[in-house]
């Protein structure tokens, strides 16, 4: 987005993208490199354990990119995001089991259900002020979990198990760990790209306008309520697909997977990575989901560390480690020189 920014124009307070590391980070190729690493990983280590962790991490990335639409782009704090994943996972699990369908064919139902969930949760709450919204979404998250815990159709506390695989063509079962891993990577990459592109479109701008100043956005003819509801709906869809992958990966769904802790972890990935910046969020999600695996000995302290980290980041780097940088190319060289001259005058 901002490779060729003339750094001399950048105001002092906002650090211009300079230095080798950040330039690498801003590079267009980063996404391809990440994908290549993801594709190559099983060739390095293809134990079931490693595949399991990598698949889980990829699903986590999908969730974080969905929450980033809601929190990062639109500035709506959703503390019950995992509920959308629950809706997706339960819907696909129940439908697949009831009709003995591969999970792939449950996607239309999942789409309908998650969009519905997004609208049901969003419609009454999005008129509220941001802090009320946060706590109401928290309440909704809990409601979803408790409901799943108490209904017969969701299998109560023990949940649903024995969910059919995603797809089987002849003898080729997509459910094999390695194949499933690649399917997951493909889906996740697609969704992350889609979310990033949405962020750079008219709708994505509208989200940012709402985040920055709702009144001003409204004065420009942006129907803030509709725009927020759209952010919510997109977030819900992303979460729902995360749920389908989750159900396929574990072939079981239980209420304990959807506690507040999970919502909080996804939020941390978004916040630490850099709200609104898809690249940062992906890296944040990988760090949050993979770090505990590397630091097994410190398992007791990891959530404490996450909590403290969250505070520290908000205090010292509120935009996250890799904030979305507000730069874009200037117009033409001629204009640019003129602009430099003016900027120079003012200094």
């Amino acid at each position: 987005m901002s490779e060729n920014v003339d750094t001399t124009l950048a105001p002092k307070k906002i650090r211009p993208p300079s230095g080798r590391v950040s330039r690498l980070f801003e590079s267009k190729w980063l996404g391809w490199v990440a994908l290549a690493i993801a594709v190559a990983a099983p060739f390095v280590n293809a134990t079931p354990y490693a595949l399991n962790i990598m698949t889980t991490a990829a699903i986590f990335v999908l969730l974080a990119s969905g929450l980033n639409i809601v929190v990062g782009y639109c500035g709506l704090l959703d503390l019950g995001y995992i509920a959308f994943m629950a809706v997706g996972a339960y819907t696909s699990g129940i439908v697949a089991k009831a009709f003995d369908l591969p999970l792939l064919f449950t996607i239309p139902v999942v789409l309908v259900m998650t969009v519905l969930a997004g609208l049901i949760i969003g419609a009454p709450t999005l008129r509220l002020r941001s802090d009320y919204l946060a706590i109401v979404t928290l309440g909704f998250g809990e409601i979803t979990r408790i409901t799943a815990n108490n209904l017969a159709i969701t299998g109560g506390p023990s949940g649903i198990f024995g969910i059919p695989g995603i797809l089987k063509i002849g003898d080729f079962d997509f459910q094999q760990p390695a194949v499933f891993y690649y399917v997951t990577i493909l889906v996740v990459a697609g969704f992350v790209l889609a979310a990033a592109r949405l962020g750079k479109s008219r709708l994505g701008r509208a989200w940012r306008f709402v985040r920055e100043d709702e009144d001003a956005a409204e004065a420009m003819g942006i129907h803030t309520y509709k725009v927020k509801l759209l952010a919510y709906t997109f977030g819900a869809i992303w979460g729902g697909f995360g749920g389908v992958l989750f159900a396929g990966h574990l072939s079981a769904v239980a209420p304990t997977s959807f506690v507040f802790l999970q919502s909080a972890l996804v939020l941390m990935a978004v916040v630490l990575g850099g709200m609104g910046n898809m690249r940062g969020v992906v890296i944040g999600a990988l760090v949050i989901s993979l770090l505990p695996e590397l630091l097994r000995d410190l398992a007791e302290y990891r959530y404490l560390a996450f909590g403290v980290l969250l505070i520290v980041v908000m205090l010292f780097r509120p935009q996250g480690f890799w904030p979305a940088r507000g730069y874009e190319p200037e117009r033409k060289p001629a204009e640019e020189r003129e602009a430099v001259a003016v900027a120079g005058e003012q200094r």
């Binding site: 704090l77 941001s130 939020l267 302290y301 404490l304 505070i311 908000m314």
Partner: peptide, 22 residues
């Protein structure tokens, strides 16, 4: 911004919970 403060509050809550747990 309100968002930053809210997130900090979530962080404090987390730290307290898992601090005590530890």
């Amino acid at each position: 911004p309100r968002l930053a403060v809210l997130i900090t509050a979530v962080g404090v809550s987390f730290s307290l919970e898992y601090g005590i747990s530890a």
